[in-house]
Amino acid sequence: MTPDLFSQIVAAAACIVILWRAEPAINRMRARSSPILLRLSFWCLAVAAIGALVEIVLSGPPPWPATVGAIGVALLLFCERRIRYLTRRPPTVRPDVQ
Rank of each mutant, 00 (worst) to 15 (best):
E80S: 12
R21N: 03
V73W: 10
P3D: 13
A46V: 00
S34P: 01
R84Q: 07
V17I: 14
R94P: 03
S59W: 13
R88P: 05
S59M: 15
L58W: 10
L38I: 11
P61R: 12
A11G: 10
S33R: 08
P63G: 08
C15P: 03
R28Y: 03
I26E: 02
A74E: 03
A49R: 00
P63I: 08
I56H: 00
C15Y: 00
M1E: 08
E23Q: 14
D4N: 15
D4I: 04
C15D: 05
P65L: 07
R39H: 04
A12M: 12
P90D: 06
F6E: 11
V10W: 03
I50G: 10
R94G: 04
L5Y: 08
A14R: 00
G51K: 03
A52D: 02
L45G: 05
I9M: 13
A14K: 00
P61I: 04
R88T: 13
A31Y: 07
S59Q: 12
P24W: 00
A13M: 07
G72Q: 01
A49F: 00
I26L: 12
A48T: 14
R21V: 03
G72E: 00
L76H: 06
P3S: 10
I18F: 00
A31G: 04
P62V: 06
S7N: 07
L58G: 08
V93F: 13
C79F: 12
R32D: 15
N27T: 09
V10A: 10
T87K: 09
P35F: 02
V54K: 08
F42I: 06
E80Y: 07
A25D: 01
Y85C: 14
M1K: 07
A48L: 11
A14W: 00
F78P: 04
P95R: 07
L38V: 09
